[in-house]
Amino acid sequence: MNVFRLAGDMMHLLSIVVLLLKITGIKSCRGISLKTQELYLLVFITRYLDIFTNFVSLYNTVMKLVFLGTSSAIVYYMRYDRIIKLTYDKEQDTFKYLLLVAPSAVLALATSHVYTVLEVLWTFSIYLEAVAIMPQLVLLQRTQNIDNLTGNYVFLLGSYRGLYILNWIYRFFTEKHYRQWLVWTCGVVQTIIYCDFFYYYFLSWQNNEKLALPA
């Protein structure tokens, strides 16, 4: 494992911790898209089905369990916590699941390398992860007064994607059999989706102003 991959994983973990702290700390999930969170949970479930059959390292197994556990907790809090669920912007979070899930499923069926259930679901999870942030970005655009934690959450998540690209470039040059156009394409698409957000994030940081995305 290289330093980019480790740093990427840590950013990913940190983004989830920041989100959980925001939700449980201030008892509010304002500005957070439940749809994106549910899609991420679906991504983790479909990707980590191999958790008991394909042992890579203790690190991988523990991280998989942590990602599954924390994303389930976030969805649970937003859906069922007596106080927190009242702060969810349901009317604003209108992105259609099917718009993201259906193309991912079709692409997974069309392009999976081998046709086993695990492999097709793994491929599906790669496609879905690339676009799962979209409901969140749309919601951010509609939210006035984005709080710092929400902005930082999306920023950390974007950093994780950026670092994974560096990890792939590193692996491409250091590992003989590391060829995966699928993961590359999806990763780049996913990172491009964040570009607009990054632009406004840095702008607000530079001018010391609150983050706001133009509608």
Binding site: D9, S112, H113
Partner: peptide, 10 residues
């Protein structure tokens, strides 16, 4: 790696 995919990544 199976399928050339990054199955050892998260």
């Amino acid at each position: 790696i199976e399928g050339g995919g990054a199955h050892d990544e998260l």
